[in-house]
Simulated assay, not measured.
Amino acid sequence: MGSESPSAQYIHMVQHLIEECIVFNMSKEECMEALEKHANIKPVITSTVWNELEKENKEFFDAYSKKREERRFDSDGETSQRQRIRDVVSESTVKNSNDDDKS
C-alpha cells in the first residue's frame, strides 16, 4: 500500500470501513451515515465505493441483501412478538390494578 497514491489509499480505507459495516449487517444507508458521523467521510464517497464493490461482487451483495431482508422480517416478527407480550403484561397489570381498587 506504500506505493499507492493518497487517493487510492483513501479509497482502500473507505472500502475497509464499508467491510466493517457489512460485518455489523448495516445497510448502505446506515453505513453512509455511520462513516459520515464517525469517520467524517462524505456520504457520496461511501456510496460510490459501495456501488463499485457491488459491481465487483454481485453475488455476494445479492446474498447479503437477501440475508438482510430475511433478518428484517425475523426482527419484525420478534418486535411484534415483544410488543404483544408487553400488551399482555400491560393489560394484566391494568386488570390487577382495577381488581385491587374493587377490593
Results as ranks from 00 to 15, higher is better:
N98K: 10
C31E: 00
N96H: 12
E56F: 06
D100V: 13
T93A: 12
Q83K: 13
S103A: 11
D74A: 04
R68M: 14
S103G: 12
S47I: 07
I18Q: 00
E19W: 03
V89I: 12
E33P: 05
I11P: 00
I85S: 06
E69F: 10
K42M: 07
Q83R: 13
G2R: 11
V44T: 12
E19N: 11
C31M: 01
A8L: 06
A63W: 12
E52G: 12
K37W: 00
S80W: 07
E70I: 10
E4T: 07
K28S: 08
V94A: 13
L17K: 06
V23D: 02
L53S: 09
G77C: 01
E33A: 11
W50P: 02
S97E: 13
D101E: 13
E52N: 14
A39V: 01
S47Y: 09
F24A: 02
Q9I: 02
T93W: 07
F73R: 14
K55L: 14
H12Q: 12
N96L: 15
T48I: 10
S27W: 02
S75T: 04
E30F: 00
E59Q: 12
I41E: 01
E30G: 02
L35T: 01
S75Y: 03
F73C: 08
P43T: 05
F24R: 03
N51W: 07
K42V: 11
N51I: 14
S3W: 06
V89K: 07
E33K: 13
N25K: 08
S5E: 04
I85G: 01
A39H: 12
S27N: 09
I45D: 09
E69C: 10
S3D: 14
M13L: 02
E69I: 10
A8I: 07
R84T: 06
K28R: 09
R86A: 05
A39D: 05
R72F: 06
D74N: 05
